[in-house]
Simulated assay, not measured.
Amino acid sequence: MTLTLVLFYAFIAVVSVQIIYYLSFLFSFGLKSPETRLKKQIPISIIVCAKNEAENLKKNIPSLLNQDYSSFEIVLVNDSSFDDTLEIMEDFAANNSQVKVVDVKVSEAFWGNKKYALTLGIKASSYDTLVFTDADCTPASNQWLAHISSQFSNEKSIVLGYGAYAKKKFSLLNKLIRFETVMTALQYFSYAKMEIPYMGVGRNLAYKKEVFFNNCGFNSHMALKSGDDDLFINEVANATNTALCFSKESFTISEPKHSFKSWILQKRRHVSTAKYYKAKHKLLLGLFYLTQLSFWILGGIFIYLGVLLPWIAALIALRFLIQWICFGFTAKKLEETDLILLLPLLEISLITSQLSIFIANLISKPTHWK
């Protein structure tokens, strides 16, 4: 058997695996409609942990206070900031009885560790249902809490939401950031629908307080600088206790990074926790990325060599068709339709970025959450 045939059969296998993934994503999440029926409102504690976020707090806390919801509090956690973050928090607390402030002092044992600050915020919260977001996030509507809380039930104690990024015109970086966000959401929503949840995002995440304490909080990974959202959910989520909330009213919107360097540093920190996921999740995620990368490499080799082109073209077209259908339904649901036509360009850009992040993390580890 010649090398060309070996590579051709390998390409068939890669395309087949990619098609299986995208069909699974399409039928588990892409074609699903969000649950928009609102239920009885339960008391909620919103936890916002901030480090040097004075300006973002001034801009975004009013949208949290403006939620059309009967019973909630906002726990603002100052994680040893050295700007005006604490003063801004105390101003909100002085003028709003729904706001309480937790001031976390520098700790030698937990310096720069967001999980320690979050733990103190959770302990200070008054209610059994916790909703998490970041200081740079704003809810897409004043129905955010109502939609998130409606997904809780006797069986569902974790709710995974969607944290979008604000759109910027004429910015390829902005489109790349939003594309990566959609692809990540497509996967964690799909796997949760297939009863193998593996992560959530701290920009829009909710769970019962008992889930936190029954798991001993972040104890097993407190020494890691990241993972307060994805690694924690990887530990506690299972086939029966996890619900999704992806109605457009339930989104949060964050300000994206403005430079490629700062975005890469942010992703390096996030990616560094993936090796601590459960083995089945690492296998599923790793195989998806490996076949993505192999699709572009092997496809490029065959096009460059100019051999078996009709077969190669058919396989490439089939894979792109199914991917476009899956991504198109998802992008429409998550209000990111401007990304659909740029899918091939954004995908190869993201794969290249992820490869560089993987290599960079092998060389050195990112430190501190802010």
Rank of each mutant, 00 (worst) to 15 (best):
K333V: 07
A166L: 12
L173N: 14
S141K: 10
I325W: 06
E249V: 02
F212V: 06
A239D: 15
I312Q: 10
Q41L: 04
F260P: 03
G328E: 12
K123V: 10
P344Y: 00
I196L: 07
Y277A: 08
F92T: 06
I12M: 13
A164D: 14
R319E: 13
A279H: 09
S150M: 01
T337P: 04
G306C: 08
E347K: 14
N78T: 01
E73V: 02
S262L: 12
S294N: 06
L5Q: 14
E53W: 00
K225R: 08
G202H: 11
Q187L: 07
S126F: 09
V48C: 05
D338I: 02
T85P: 09
D229W: 00
I42H: 03
N96E: 15
D128Y: 00
N174V: 02
G286K: 07
A313Q: 12
L57F: 02
K208Q: 13
G161I: 02
A313C: 12
S272K: 10
Y304D: 12
L350K: 13
C326L: 01
L284A: 14
V182A: 09
I301G: 04
L65M: 00
A135R: 10
L305A: 15
Q18H: 04
M183C: 15
F170V: 01
I46W: 05
I19A: 13
A314N: 07
S107M: 03
H258P: 05
V307Q: 07
L285F: 05
G161R: 03
E155K: 08
A54C: 07
A223P: 00
A317F: 00
E335P: 06
K332H: 08
L318T: 07
D338R: 01
M89Q: 13
L308G: 10
Q354D: 15
K32D: 13
I357S: 06
R269E: 13
N113D: 04
D338C: 10
F11H: 00
F8S: 11
I359Y: 07
F11P: 02
S254E: 15
F170I: 02
F8V: 08
I340M: 02
L342Q: 10
Y116D: 11
S157L: 05
L293S: 14
D338E: 15
L343D: 12
M1F: 06
I19C: 05
A109W: 10
V159G: 04
A314D: 06
P197C: 00
S149E: 15
